[in-house]
Design a protein around this nucleic acid. Structure first.
Lengths: 222, 222
DNA sequence: TAGATTGTTAATCGATTAACAATC
DNA sequence: TAGATTGTTAATCGATTAACAATC
């Protein structure tokens, strides 16, 4: 495995490679060349080879890539061979929605607790998990060795909750709060801006109307 | 308003500009220079001016930008001055989660219906909306003038549902399905890969551990 | 007017694509 | 071995940043 800093563009493509490899595995495909993969996934063969070679030489000249072992390599690169214990911060509408979703995530991701400040919610159940008091979060993270904090609180409180989680010792934060937050360098951060996402959709809908594209062609994801 | 094709990088930054402008407005700030905005939002002043000038000259030399009118301009660019009628496709766990979330979206976005194939769910209520039969989707989109279809079905069925929605006449698709889909050129598409997102978080958590970054510094969103 | 700050052109940087030698 | 396809270096493309003339 090489060592230079990997660009975000590359990192963001890794889960996609993995999804296609899983599909291929499910279909029983054993090997794939970068050219065949290119036709399937829509990146150039050159980019695929370039991307993978950031992490090592997983292919074999004259043959291509073994679907199974490439998929295992990418799993290991992404850290999907490990377990992750998570807490949800905030049991309002957003927290309820994300808790429901988080329970369906495949792999080693497990929701261990939900935390709230609203006394009326504390002690009630959400998706089979008891809602606990925000006051107890630091102790819980330490005792239960929580890896990831999922932030589902209001914009106004997101930074404070992030600070608390980082203090408590989480290694990563996944935020759905409608704001930008900062974390110490040793904590990983991934922010999902769902409202930004639908706003760009609105832009594209109106842009299409304006340029009045002729119908018929097809457009791929990304 | 200019006309050249706007890059995705620019489009993706627009909602973020808007969020910061809303905050400034709330605080009663009336004008901002690209330099001040840069300090706040973390893009270079040059990039801010470059981005905005894709759509028109909204500033005034020697003064800066009016927070209120710039925010209005961006609202108009994004199409947030319009109403959008939406349907949720799929009332399983993901559909339930997204319906809960979609009800909280601010602005002109309104959920008008939820559709399912599972006969046991059809006719029951979800977040105050009656779940309807997938068989009736085309008629509903036409009659209710639905603009956006939100796809929350299984990977296996996502493309079929997208095809149906496009046939019915939606102008945009917001997909949360764990797969890539294709739509005709005249339909806008925005895909949210939540599982990809948490996978990149896992990567970054492990990457930090490997490079063993010294603690202390702070990292901003994006 | 003088100072400030935009709008825009030019320079730089980074990411993608092309080419090809290495090698299975 | 000959053919195929990788790994990697070089060329291109696009996006970001810097510079500065225009102008409020």
């Amino acid at each position: 495995m090489k060592n230079a800093k990997i660009s975000n563009a590359v990192i963001n493509r890794l889960p996609r490679y993995r999804r296609y490899l899983m599909e291929l595995q499910k279909k029983g495909v054993e090997k794939i060349s970068s050219k065949e993969f290119s036709n399937l996934i829509g990146y150039t063969a050159s980019q695929i080879r370039q991307d993978l070679n950031n992490f090592g030489g997983f292919g074999q000249q004259g043959y291509g890539y073994s679907v199974e072992s490439l998929r295992e390599e990418i799993d290991a690169i992404l850290g999907l061979d490990k377990e992750y214990r998570m807490v949800i911060m905030g049991a309002g509408n957003l927290g309820q929605a994300i808790t429901k979703y988080a329970n369906t995530i495949k792999g080693g991701f497990k929701v261990s607790g939900v935390f709230e400040v609203n006394k009326n919610l504390i002690g009630t159940m959400l998706e089979g998990i008891e809602i606990m008091d925000y006051e107890d979060i630091v102790e819980f993270v330490e005792k239960e060795k929580i890896d990831i904090g999922i932030i589902c609180v209001d914009r106004e409180n997101a930074q404070e909750v992030a600070d608390k989680l980082c203090f408590a010792g989480v290694k990563g934060i996944w935020s759905f709060a409608r704001t930008d937050i900062e974390v110490p360098k040793h904590v990983a951060l991934e922010v999902v801006h769902l409202s930004d996402s639908i706003h760009t959709l609105a832009y594209r809908m109106n842009d299409i109307k304006k340029t009045d594209a002729k119908k018929g062609g097809r457009k791929k994801t990304d």
